[in-house]
Structures are given as structure tokens and as C-alpha cells.
């Protein structure tokens, strides 16, 4: 062994190491970022505007109070109002074209749970939770954005805050969400 410079002190080794680290970290950051950005919607629906003109959430997402899913509005629902609105811009023209042809708008749901989580809106609405508790302040959003940190601990946190210790025993039961 001629060289007296230890392995870890060689610059080439250090550069390669740094690069590998960078790629791994970058991949992780990119992956996380990718899951956090809102997906591309067929029409960049401006939630803030519709709330601004006084639309209730349940006007379009009708199922929340009565069932597991809040649901996404049909073209009919959009067309009901938009028929009377002049298609001033491209997006409105898109709505008009969907409406006129009676085609469905392929909305991409944003607030979804993995398949092993059973979530029902109904009990949460009955417990008088508001929509923005989980879906964020939509007056500030155009398209719906996924909310950060909605993991199991977040669910449990809220269940604990909203209940007495005895109730929490029941509300933290696995079968509340998983079966």
C-alpha cells in the first residue's frame, strides 16, 4: 500500500459519496414532493371563487352528511349554473363544452384514503366537524390541495381531543377504521 492518504480522505471518494447521498436525498425529496402536489385536474376548478360567491360545500359534495363519500359533482350540477354564464375564458369554455355534450368531467379526487382505511364522512359531520378541519381552508385554494401530515397519528390526535378518555378507548379501536 503505497499511498499514505487514507481512503476516506481521498477527494474522489468523497465526491462520489456526496453524489450518492445527494441522489438518494433528492429522490426522497422528489418522491415526497410528488405525493404532496395537487394532481392535474381536467379543469382547474377555483374553489375560492365558488365559496366567494356563496356556494356551500355540500351543494356540490352532496354525500358528506348522509354517507361515507362526499362525492364529486356531476356535469349536470356544473351546467345547471354555468348554462347561464357566458364562457369568458378557456376554462369556462371547457365547462361549456362538457356541459353541452353532456360528457362527464373526469375529476381527480384529492382527499383519498388508502384502501385499508375505511373512512365515512357521516359520523364526522354528525360530530359537527367542519369541512376545513380536514380539507384545509378552501377559500385560499383554487384546485383542492392535499393536506399535509394526515397520517394515523393525526386521526388519533383529533379523536382524543374530541372525546373523553372512556370514549377515546372506543374511538381508538382498530376496527374504527381498519377491517
Amino acid at each position: 500500500m503505497k499511498s499514505s492518504i487514507p481512503l476516506w480522505q481521498r477527494s474522489s471518494v468523497r465526491i462520489v459519496g456526496a453524489l450518492v447521498l445527494l441522489i438518494i436525498m433528492g429522490g426522497a425529496v422528489g418522491g415526497i414532493y410528488y405525493t404532496q402536489i395537487p394532481p392535474e385536474q381536467p379543469i382547474p376548478f377555483p374553489h375560492n371563487f365558488h365559496i366567494g360567491v356563496g356556494a356551500q360545500c355540500s351543494y356540490c359534495h352532496t354525500g358528506a352528511a348522509t354517507g361515507p363519500n362526499a362525492g364529486l359533482p356531476t356535469t349536470d350540477k356544473c351546467w345547471g349554473c354555468h348554462q347561464q354564464i357566458e364562457p369568458r375564458n378557456d376554462n369556462l369554455k371547457l365547462v361549456a363544452s362538457y356541459g353541452a355534450e353532456g360528457k362527464q368531467i373526469p375529476w381527480v379526487p384529492v382527499a383519498i384514503q388508502p384502501d385499508f382505511v375505511v373512512f365515512s364522512h357521516q359520523p364526522h359531520i354528525n360530530a359537527e366537524l367542519t369541512c376545513e378541519t380536514c380539507h384545509g381552508d378552501l377559500t385560499q385554494m383554487t384546485v383542492a390541495e392535499p393536506q399535509k401530515g394526515q397520517n394515523m397519528g393525526w386521526c388519533l390526535d383529533c379523536h382524543q381531543k374530541m372525546s373523553t378518555p372512556e370514549e377515546f378507548v372506543l374511538l381508538s379501536d382498530c376496527a374504527t377504521c381498519h377491517y
Partner: peptide, 16 residues
């Protein structure tokens, strides 16, 4: 696998 507090049955939590 654990006992549920509500239904008093054995649960199998697949994702765990």
C-alpha cells in the same frame, strides 16, 4: 390481532 373495545371481537388489522 387484538380485541376490539367496541364489538368485543378479535380484530385482524391487515395493514399492521
Amino acid at each position: 390481532t387484538l380485541h376490539s373495545e367496541v364489538e368485543k371481537i378479535n380484530l385482524q388489522v391487515y395493514n399492521r
